[in-house]
Amino acid sequence: MGLIRNLQPERSSEQDEPSRFEKAILPHLDAAYNLARWLTRNDQDAEDMVQEACLRAFKSFDGFYGVHAKAWLLTIVRNTCYTWLGKNRVHDLSASLDEDVHQAESQVPDPQALLPRFEDNQALRQALEGLPAEFREVLILRELEGLSYKEIADVTGIPQGTVMSRLARARGRLKLSLAGHMNKEH
């Protein structure tokens, strides 16, 4: 019963708690949803992930004193999604990431010819969705959320020195995928 009481704080004595929580979390709800949507690749699952992550955030909010609420919330969203992926989409996580990035880059026949490809939103979206989750997430965090390497390292739990090489591989894969798309059409 103690557990239940803890989850539902006395509003009379902790009037400021929900508002402090709301102030910290609500501004980052789009970021939370964006990451969850890209990781789960499904609207409804993404909503579930965000809702569950907010619950977890609420529960551990007492332990949060930092100023980087965005990175803190994204870390929880990311962990929630990974647990879910491990149970429901294990193939998303088990992709082989073994090719060398420079090799990938050199397999792109002509980077210049690829440029118009980037304009094709649909192709870009598909290529991004086709990447393994580990690559997808660093690109989302970097390009769509504008996080620094340090923040990406905090959210994903990979060493800061690995963030750059992970991004390099992700970009190489993305270009390669777009190039493949291009070849199929011509």
Binding site: R37, Q112, L124, K175
Partner: peptide, 22 residues
């Protein structure tokens, strides 16, 4: 390679790929 990296970045950042919370 740099040009294509920058073009890819610009394309990803146009905002059209961003999914906002319903």
């Amino acid at each position: 390679v740099l040009n294509s990296h920058q073009a890819l970045r610009a394309a990803l950042r146009t905002g059209s790929l961003y999914r906002t919370a319903p």
